[in-house]
């Protein structure tokens, strides 16, 4: 029972987080988790902050869905880092989510204007 609860909760966050991550990964190739997190924060002018606790499960889920691809690289300081990049399926997904987002925000805006 608790299992399906976790799943449900994550699903409700999914919409915007997936979109943001996919967008960031599509702009710059081969980013590791920390860089993705910083990029979202930076590009949103510090408005949006992604928690580490939601970022990694989301990354792994999207990897499992085949939208992003992960790879271990060795950095100059010798440490290994796991970097992500967009797959063709992810690109398609990004398009869908983006148009979905536009539709929803446009609709919300219309409602706000009408009201």
């Amino acid at each position: 029972m608790s299992m399906s609860l976790t799943v449900a909760k994550r699903d409700s966050l999914q919409g915007s987080l997936d979109l943001l991550v996919l967008k960031v990964v599509s702009r710059r190739r081969r980013l590791h988790g920390y860089a993705i997190m910083s990029a979202i924060q930076e590009m949103s002018g510090d408005v949006l902050r992604v928690e580490e606790g939601s970022l990694y499960p989301a990354l792994h889920r999207m990897e499992a869905a085949g939208w992003i691809r992960a790879e271990w690289i060795r950095k100059e300081n010798g440490r290994r880092a796991r970097v992500y990049e967009l797959t063709p399926a992810g690109k398609k997904q990004l398009g869908l989510e983006e148009s979905g987002w536009q539709t929803v925000t446009a609709a919300v805006n219309r409602v706000l204007r009408e009201a």
Binding site: M3, V7, E51, G53, Y56, P57, H60
Partner: peptide, 19 residues
């Protein structure tokens, strides 16, 4: 900020396996 590393690991594993 990270919380327990273990918890994250479980969370990520959940995604991969249990789901």
């Amino acid at each position: 900020a990270f919380g327990s590393a273990l918890r994250h690991r479980e969370g990520s594993r959940d995604v991969k396996l249990v789901v």
